[in-house]
């Protein structure tokens, strides 16, 4: 038969080299964030910091206002995640289990927009938000992302897989339609909600172009916006600061990913295959 163990040591070696190559930029980024400006400019560059210090991080939060950017990023991400979880699961449930007039066209339109590239809506969306006076405000950063067609698709697929009998049983027991959704079906949707929540969080946290255009003063910057502007502005010469900033941007998502890794991968797998 096929030996699963024998001769696979070389595969570990190849994989190790590959994974080291893939994460080398991150290792270098984190190590570099502890280096001084002088050391970062050394030729040839060093790997390990000669004298590690937290100076760059201290400056991020004292001289630059990374606390504000971090808070903005968190607020936007949390509200966007909450909106997607609630509204997408509501419609996803209705599409999967209930009959109502207009159901088919509604689903068709939502699905059709899945394929439309972001650039198509970018201009009119900007005009809309500008006319509503929401430029340079948190609602302007949040509202366009509060619901996504993808979220509806994901939740609908999940609810389709749950037994319909639960719905009938709830009705026989005299529960109202909304209560059946909130108290019977929603608690069962944990895995799908986790997947949608994590994907939405990642998307919001790393979202870059829209906040770059909408957030116009420092008090409304999100982390990626601040980092992008500093990396071309007057601070671009302070490379250590940028590396520390990059580390601060990456740390929360890496943490979220580490905690939910298993669920997340299962979730991506299910959305991918279906």
């Amino acid at each position: 038969m096929i030996t699963k163990r024998k001769g696979h040591l070389w595969l570990y070696a190849v994989l190790t080299v590959a994974v080291v190559a893939v994460i080398a930029p991150f290792v270098w980024m984190v190590l570099g964030s502890f280096k001084s400006e002088g050391e970062l400019r050394q030729v040839p560059p060093t790997w390990l910091p000669e004298s590690a210090s937290l100076d760059n991080y201290r400056q991020l939060f004292s001289r630059l206002d990374f606390t504000t950017y971090f808070t903005n990023s968190i607020i936007v991400a949390v509200v966007v995640v909450a909106g997607n979880l609630l509204f997408c699961s509501m419609l996803g449930y209705a599409l999967a289990l209930l009959e109502f007039p207009g159901k088919r066209p509604l689903f068709a339109v939502v699905m059709a927009t899945l394929m439309i590239p972001g650039v198509v809506t970018f201009v009119p969306l900007f005009v809309l938000v500008a006319n509503a006076g929401l430029i340079n405000s948190l609602p302007g950063l949040i509202l366009p992302f509060l619901v996504t067609p993808f979220g509806v698709f994901l939740m609908r697929q999940f609810f389709l897989g749950l037994p319909r009998d639960l719905l009938d049983a709830g009705r026989v027991d005299g529960a109202g339609e909304l209560r059946i959704f909130a108290q019977i079906f929603l608690p069962l949707a944990g895995p799908a909600l986790a997947t949608l929540g994590i994907l939405t969080f990642l998307g919001s946290w790393n979202n870059f172009l829209w906040p770059l255009v909408v957030a116009q003063t420092e008090d409304h910057y999100t982390l990626p916006v601040a980092l992008a502007l500093y990396s071309v502005g007057q601070n671009s010469t302070q490379y250590g600061l940028l590396l520390a900033g990059s580390t601060v941007v990456l740390a929360p998502v890496l943490l979220v990913f580490l905690i939910f890794q298993r669920r997340f991968i299962e979730g991506i797998a299910t959305t991918g295959i279906k």
Binding site: L95, E99, L106, V109, L128
Partner: peptide, 22 residues
């Protein structure tokens, strides 16, 4: 009625921020 109640928040946001711009 319940279904539309559930669909309403999404539909309003979707209409405003996705469909209308498209």
């Amino acid at each position: 009625r319940a279904a539309w109640l559930l669909a309403l928040p999404f539909s309003l946001l979707f209409l405003t921020f996705t469909l209308w711009p498209v």
